[in-house]
Every structure is written in structure tokens, then in C-alpha cells.
Design a protein around this nucleic acid. Structure first.
Length: 524
RNA sequence: GGGCCGCUAGCUCAAUUGGCAGAGCAACUGACUCUUAAUCAGUUGGUUCAGGGUUCGAGUCCCUGGCGGCUCACCA
């Protein structure tokens, strides 16, 4: 692994690491601690530049200088040595600023002896007066520079940066050092989550926390991660959804609740799926899926406006306009529009399969009826839904927790917001609150489980019991935060919006993976 | 899990038909008091992912394994 020592056993440094370690030692020999406990920064780089420009504007500079000394701190990201002058940039969490170091200002001893012990990547603090260089850049005429933390690993190459995808994910900290646009992606992620919270809080939603460790999993069709609690001697599952717990809270009397949490699904990893992902679920009493469409639309629009400052988003060269109202189309109408097939005319598997194939769909022979509908959606409809669209009214077989439509019991009141032809931003429905219907749907799922469908939901008797106490008519929504951020930031895969994506364990330090795995597993 | 592709210096990448493993940046030595991919001169740096095999000779061809990417399947 780049930059790594042989971590187990010896701490053998590479040649480049050893050179830097020797410099740290040289600092100690001069009575300078290379990892001091305190910094004495008086301004961020951003504030320093702003302050200089204010002074400049107020014409308060003396001979072009802001005479009040200032101390900035950060990582050395460039270093240009020019004889008796050095130009360097340091970067902090806000921006960067140029240091101008002169032998006659810094002092001959410091300049000749100390400066050569500083490298790219080191954290330093610099004190001096702000001025503008000939090229117009606000810079710090540095009278003192002090080591804050000696870096033993060099940062990636300055021009090409770090592009190796594996290293970017495994050593995200290096990715963040090297790539400003990656730092920005995760700022947008944070601001997006904040914006969603603000939206819901302002609408009187209560943020709640429900169990991650669940004795019974449910709320979605997925295989769970399984673990064991020793003291209780009981199997627990990492939640695949928090849906059933949030709806219990509506039984309890709260009218509007939401939770932002990690869900875990023990399934494949690809550009749209991660084994742990961040979900926003929110439920509103006395609302239905129509209400929730309004809410989702308003929420995404407000988040885009707050975070990106625009409703026009480019995703993979597609121009997407979030300006409401978004298109609403039923699943049935959309499939008919784009494939020419009305699946209601084909109520059995053989008929629908034949029609789908006649329309040019690529579907395997054994595919069950609901899956054929799903394939028609995937192959004909989705690629055409570039602009934000609510796809509504799904066949009941696809949705065991949604309420049937009053005028059509074969369909449920459900919608999915889709965008950019492929991104499902979420999933929502009018919640099923008839306890006996819910029990029947669980029993259907149970049959599928017994037939070998590992993703079918187990029966949750306590949840049925809760419904028997009465749950008001309710609209519920789940929004995939990672996908929303992927859309907002124009990233190609989910992993690019997850700081530390799941990766296969790497155990190649000494070419003995089995041994490495053993020692890892027995570590305290 | 299947298929295809990749892994070469700290980073970004070369290496012709199987024929001396290279460049830029970084590092090291030196020059240079307004540079910003600084410039100039010189130097160092390699288990070519690992292990086998074929061959006079393997980064290159074959086999096995590791990790990754894309894609298909499953899923949100």
C-alpha cells in the first residue's frame, strides 16, 4: 500500500520516509519539537486574505503592508526555492495563502539551516505581515515559520495528483489531500443533509432514532447482515430499513417523524449500490402519497437551491431542470407509452413475456410476472425519464407495505422519483394501515421465503400488533441520500460520494494473506 | 458469482517481435531575492502484484492465486 510501512512487526521506512524522519530528528537536535502540542494560529488563510483586502480597501496599508502581524497555519502544498527567496503555499481547511520567505527577513540561520528541514506535506505555522506581490497575490512576508507536524509521506505528484481509483478509496485521506474537487463533493454531501434536515425541521417533523440492531429485519426486500449478541445469546440483524419502527411511532401518536441513518443490505456492490448506505425516511400522518409527492418535490428543490444555488443540474452531460411541477405518470401508462404494452392486457406470465419479447425486450424465460413488469420499466421507460419524474401506482405484487388504490385493488399508491434516466432517488407510498391486510401480505412474503426467496420479508407480529392499535392514514418516503448527492455532484458511482467505501480486505504486506487475516481477526 | 480489462520508482505514465527496465514530478547536490506545473545543471531511486512454468533470455508468452476497474446477474 503506498506510503505504508510494514505495519505488522517492523517499522521499516522507505528511503523517502527515512529522509523525512532524519529531518524530524535534525529538528529535535536543534531543540525544535517536530510534533508540538499547540498551534498559535490567529487567522485562517481565508480570513487573512479578507482582512488584507479590507485594509487595502480602507487605504490603511503602510507601504503596501498590513503592519499587524498575523499567524496562519496549514499544510505546505508548494515550495519554490529561488536562492535567497522562497515562495510556498500553505493550505488549511478554508483555502490557501502564499508565504514569501526572504533570507533577510527570516534571518540567515533560520533560512539556511532550518528551511531545508521543511518539506511538501508538512503542517506549519507562519507569522508575518500581509502584502501583495508583483503578480497581485496576497502573500505573507514571513518573519517566523514553525513546524506543527512533520509529514513522513510525501503528497502525490502536484500536477496529476492521485488518480489510482483503488488508492483513492482505500486511502481517502490521500485523495482528499490531492484532489480539491473530492473535498468539495463531501462538503456538498454535508450541506445536502443539513438542507434536508432544515426542510423537515421547519415543517414540524421530529427527528428520531430507531434501532440499528434489530431482532427481526423488515421494511424492504433485501438480505440482511446477521450478528449475535452474546449476553442475550440472540441473533440480531443490522437494519435493512427503519420503516417499521418509524410507523410504530405514528401508532404512538407522533404525526411527523424522520430519521437519517445507515441501512445495511447484504447484496452486491455496484455504481448504485453499497452494502451500507444512508437513508432518509419520513412519515406524515393524515397525508397520502399525493401529499408526499408535493413534499419530496419541495424538499429536493429547496436542497438544490440551498446547496447548489440552482435548479438546473448537469448529470453526465444531461441537462436536468428541477423546476416544479415534475412530471407524474403511472407505471402502467409509462410502460405503454415507451413499449406499447399495456400489462393489464397480459395478466399471466406467458402472455406478458411474449408481448415483452415481441416489443424487443431481453428477458429470460423463467422470469415471474412482476419481474417482467420491472424489466419493461428498466429497458423501455427509465432511459427516457431524463427530467425529474414521479412514476406512480405500482402493481401490488411489487409493494408489500403500500396501501391499495381505492378504485383498483391490483395497484398500490406508490411512487418513485426518478431522474437522469437511471437514478432512483427514493421510494414512497401511502402506508398500509389495515392490520389484517398487512398480516396477509406478510403471509404471502412468508410463502416466498419458504420457496427460497431470501429477500422476502419475515412476518413481524409485533408490527401487526402495533397496527391493531390503529395507525392513522399516513404517507411515507425513503430518500437515498447517497444517490441524491451523486446526482447533485455529478459523480459516476456511489463510492465517489461515500468517504470510505466498502472494499475487500487487502492483505498483501508480506504476501501471506492467510496469516494477515488471522492476525487481524484476533486483534483486540 | 460470471465475462472482459488492468496492476511497472513515492505519484503520473512509457518500454517496438520475447533482447541492457525509462521519462516527468517528488527526493538528493548545486545556481538563482517577485515565483506560482518556477527555471537551469547534476545525482539517486525498481521483489515490473505474488508464486510457478516455457525459453539462451520474460515487464512482455502460459498456469495458479491476490487486489482493482468495467459489465452482467441480485438490489434501493
Amino acid at each position: 500500500m503506498p506510503g505504508a510501512c510494514h505495519v505488522r512487526g517492523t517499522m521499516e521506512l522507505s528511503e523517502l520516509q527515512q529522509i523525512r524522519q532524519d529531518k524530524a530528528q535534525a529538528l529535535r537536535e536543534r531543540g525544535i519539537e517536530p510534533y508540538p502540542g499547540r498551534a498559535h494560529r490567529t487567522a485562517s488563510t481565508e480570513d487573512a486574505i479578507a482582512r488584507f483586502e479590507d485594509q487595502e480597501h480602507a487605504q490603511a496599508l503602510v507601504d503596501g503592508h498590513d503592519t499587524e502581524p498575523i499567524t496562519v497555519a496549514g499544510r505546505i502544498v508548494s515550495f519554490r526555492h529561488m536562492g535567497k527567496t522562497v515562495f510556498a503555499h500553505i493550505r488549511d481547511g478554508h483555502g490557501q495563502i502564499q508565504l514569501y520567505l526572504r533570507k533577510d527577513v527570516l534571518g540567515a540561520d533560520a533560512y539556511d539551516d532550518l528551511l531545508k528541514l521543511f518539506d511538501l506535506g508538512d503542517f506549519v505555522e507562519a507569522t508575518g505581515e500581509l502584502f501583495r506581490t508583483k503578480t497581485g497575490e496576497v502573500s505573507l512576508r514571513t518573519s517566523e515559520i514553525r513546524m506543527l507536524a512533520k509529514a513522513l509521506n510525501a503528497p502525490p505528484e502536484k500536477w496529476h495528483g492521485l488518480s489510482d481509483i483503488e488508492t483513492r478509496y482505500r486511502q481517502r485521506y490521500v485523495d482528499l489531500i490531492a484532489n480539491e474537487e473530492v473535498r468539495e463533493v463531501f462538503r456538498i454531501r454535508a450541506r445536502t443533509i443539513t438542507a434536508l434536515r432544515h426542510f423537515l425541521d421547519s415543517r414540524d417533523y421530529l427527528e428520531v432514532e430507531t434501532p440499528t440492531l434489530q431482532p427481526l429485519y423488515g421494511g424492504a426486500a433485501a438480505r440482511p447482515f446477521t450478528t449475535h449478541h452474546h449476553a442475550l445469546d440472540q441473533t440480531f440483524y443490522l437494519r435493512i430499513a427503519d420503516e417499521l419502527y418509524l410507523k410504530r411511532l405514528l401508532v404512538g401518536g407522533y404525526e411527523r417523524v424522520y430519521e437519517i441513518c445507515k441501512d445495511f443490505r447484504n447484496e452486491g456492490i455496484d455504481r448504485n449500490h453499497s452494502p451500507e448506505f444512508t437513508m432518509l425516511e419520513f412519515y406524515e400522518a393524515y397525508a397520502d402519497y399525493e401529499t408526499m409527492m408535493e413534499t419530496v418535490e419541495a424538499m429536493i428543490v429547496q436542497a438544490a437551491q440551498e446547496v447548489l444555488g440552482t435548479l438546473r443540474i448537469t448529470y453526465h452531460d444531461k441537462e436536468i431542470d428541477l423546476t416544479p411541477p415534475w412530471r407524474r405518470v403511472t407505471l402502467r401508462a409509462a410502460i405503454e407509452e415507451y413499449s406499447g404494452i399495456d400489462y393489464v392486457d397480459h395478466p399471466d406470465q406467458a402472455s406478458l413475456l411474449a408481448a415483452a419479447r415481441a416489443a424487443g425486450a431481453d428477458i429470460e424465460s423463467g422470469t415471474v410476472w412482476p419481474r417482467i413488469v420491472d424489466e419493461l420499466l428498466k429497458q423501455f421507460v427509465r432511459p427516457n425519464l431524463i427530467q425529474p419524474t414521479f412514476l406512480t401506482d405500482y402493481p401490488v405484487a411489487l409493494s408489500p407495505l403500500a396501501k391499495r388504490k381505492a378504485d383498483d385493488p391490483t395497484h398500490v399508491e406508490r411512487f418513485q422519483p426518478l431522474v437522469a434516466g437511471s437514478i432512483e432517488l427514493g421510494n414512497a407510498f401511502t402506508e398500509l394501515n389495515d392490520p389484517m391486510d398487512q398480516l396477509a401480505r406478510f403471509q404471502e412474503q412468508q410463502k416466498d421465503r419458504e420457496a427460497g426467496d431470501e429477500e422476502a420479508m419475515p412476518i413481524d407480529i409485533d408490527y401487526v400488533t402495533a397496527l391493531m392499535y390503529g395507525m392513522p392514514p399516513t404517507g411515507g418516503v425513503g430518500i437515498g441520500i447517497d444517490r441524491l448527492v451523486m446526482f447533485f455532484t455529478d459523480q459516476p458511482t456511489l463510492r465517489d460520494v461515500i468517504l470510505f467505501p466498502a472494499m475487500r480486505r487487502q492483505a498483501i504486506e508480506d504476501g501471506r494473506p492467510a496469516l494477515a487475516a488471522t492476525s487481524d481477526d484476533t486483534a483486540p
